[in-house]
């Protein structure tokens, strides 16, 4: 089985983007690929423990995802880590701006990573942005 490096950068707070990012990360990881996710800008707040922020929708698919019983994007990201050994890194700049400590983030989120490291890590393999 060929293992590929898959890097997923997530910056959106839109339901459709977050869902697609979570699907790429989870399916990629459980299919034996080496998956790294980088959370920055408007995506990070969803992964703060106890966060009540709800993703907003871009169009009709987002509304249908909410109405139908589709697994939540956060659940899929967690499964990517638990079933597929994906790594999810919060952007160190975004962590600073939000004033977060490691204990403030969900347990399946790794230590913060800087953009320079992520870019270097992503230099081989597939890169996706949502």
């Amino acid at each position: 089985m060929a293992t590929e490096k898959i890097s997923v950068m997530v910056t959106s707070n839109k339901r459709e983007q977050l869902q697609m990012a979570a699907m790429v990360a989870s399916v990629g990881a459980v299919s034996g690929n080496d998956v790294s996710v980088f959370l920055s800008m408007n995506s990070l707040n969803f992964f703060v423990k106890g966060s009540s922020e709800q993703a907003t929708t871009e169009g009709h698919m987002g509304k249908l995802i909410e109405e139908k019983n589709v697994p939540d994007f956060k659940e899929l990201f967690q499964q990517a880590v638990e079933y597929g050994d994906a790594k999810i890194f919060p952007c160190s700049m975004a962590v600073d701006i939000l004033g977060l400590g490691q204990d403030d983030l969900e347990a399946y989120i790794s230590e913060p990573m800087g953009l320079t490291s992520f870019l270097s890590d992503a230099s081989e393999g597939q890169v996706w942005h949502f």
Binding site: V30, P71, L76, Q79, Y83, G84
Partner: peptide
């Protein structure tokens, strides 16, 4: 994903 979780176990 349900299947994958069960396969792990």
């Amino acid at each position: 994903m349900e299947l994958i979780g069960q396969m792990k176990l």
